[in-house]
């Protein structure tokens, strides 16, 4: 049986008209229109385009909810296996519409493919869900883009592995997947070094990460009235690790009431961190998270008070993505609790 493809295009590629028709509301035709026709031909015996959704670019972006509602209904009724949109090349509004359509379809469990120029601002909106074939910046590239999109759709449907972005011509989704290589790592390293000596081309397997910056928060005006919270990634937890925080590659954080104790040692804390020698932290957990001297600063009136809860997780092997999630969650709680400043210790 052939798999079913639903195709999305804008007013121009849907052969309704140019900019003057950009305000048209979405329409669905059980026909293969514009790129949908060419695309259908590329599917051969394996699949078929069952219909074309056409919507004006302005309409989609200005009446986003209404447009999506209509489109979702069509998807529900036609129940295609795949939703294909565009390619949008470098058209911003068309790109955003394609992104909106593929994201909605992906949410409904459909496989989704589109095509865009790498600098199309919609790329960032769509790449989490869709495979976006990389196109040139103008429609002249249609004849190159469609075969790539069709090839990927066919692979998605047959279960054949979709190759790397370079092999298949799509924009990387940013997923770093572990795969088996032909040679062991040391051999690849030697080969890479030889390539460098010989001024041959080589490709790094790990492009350096880029870390963003955050605006500097203003200083606390009056420390003696401030509430300061203690946070650590040093894996300090109550004895027995009641919340089962992982010793490496943490998937969660914990918070513990420390209002009744003068130090973590007194509170019976220990470390479960898998990344350092735990002996010194277990002797005195305040060496990792210095609750004791924060409490002392509170007694001496240097600070207003130490926040009731102490927050903790394990920093070793913990993905940056996870730590962003933890920081966002913990920060939200601290903000809502009116905490004025934070000490965060790392091991």
């Amino acid at each position: 049986m052939k798999f079913k493809v639903l195709y999305y295009v804008n007013q121009f590629f849907g052969q309704v008209g140019g900019e003057d028709k950009a305000g048209m509301a979405p329409e669905y035709k059980k026909e293969k229109i514009g790129p949908a026709l060419g695309f259908n031909g590329l599917l051969g015996d394996e699949g078929e385009v069952v219909g074309t959704l056409i919507c004006g670019d302005n309409y989609f972006n200005e009446n986003n909810e209404e447009a999506l509602e209509y489109i979702k209904n069509v998807i529900k009724e036609e129940n295609p296996d795949v939703v294909v949109a565009g390619p949008a090349f470098n058209a911003g509004r068309y790109g955003m519409a394609c992104a909106g359509v593929v994201n909605a379809a992906a949410e409904m469990g459909k496989k989704v493919v589109t095509g865009m120029y790498i600098e199309n601002p919609a790329v960032d909106h769509a790449k989490g869900n869709a495979i976006i074939v990389e196109t040139k910046d103008s429609a002249a590239d249609m004849r190159n883009a469609l075969p790539k999109m069709a090839a990927i759709v066919k692979k998605l449907m047959s279960g054949e592995e979709v190759g790397t972005p370079a092999e298949e011509g799509y924009i990387a989704q940013g997923k770093r997947l572990t795969v088996f290589a032909k040679d062991r790592g040391s051999k690849r390293a030697v080969d890479m070094l030889l390539a460098r000596f010989n001024n041959e081309e080589f490709e790094t397997e790990l492009p350096m990460p880029v870390f963003d910056k955050v605006d500097i928060a203003p200083a606390i005006k009056d420390l003696s009235k401030a509430t300061i919270a203690l946070v650590t990634s040093g894996g300090i937890v109550p004895e027995g690790n009641p919340d089962r925080i992982q010793s490496a590659s943490a998937q969660k954080w914990g918070k513990y009431d420390v209002s009744g104790v003068d130090s973590l040692q007194e509170g019976g804390y220990e470390t479960i961190h898998g990344g350092y020698d735990p002996v010194y932290a277990n002797e005195l957990p305040d060496r990792v998270a210095p609750l004791d001297f924060m409490k002392q600063a509170e007694k001496e009136g240097k600070i207003g008070k130490v926040f009731k809860y102490f927050y903790t997780t394990t920093g070793t092997g913990t993905a940056v993505g996870k730590s962003i999630e933890f920081g966002t969650e913990i920060g939200k709680e601290l903000k809502e609790a009116g905490v004025d400043g934070v000490i965060l210790t790392s091991t």
Partner: peptide
């Protein structure tokens, strides 16, 4: 994931 390159895993960007 031996970092002396003893095994044959790698990472590819998808």
């Amino acid at each position: 994931t031996s970092e002396i390159g003893y095994h044959n895993l790698t990472v590819k960007l998808y």
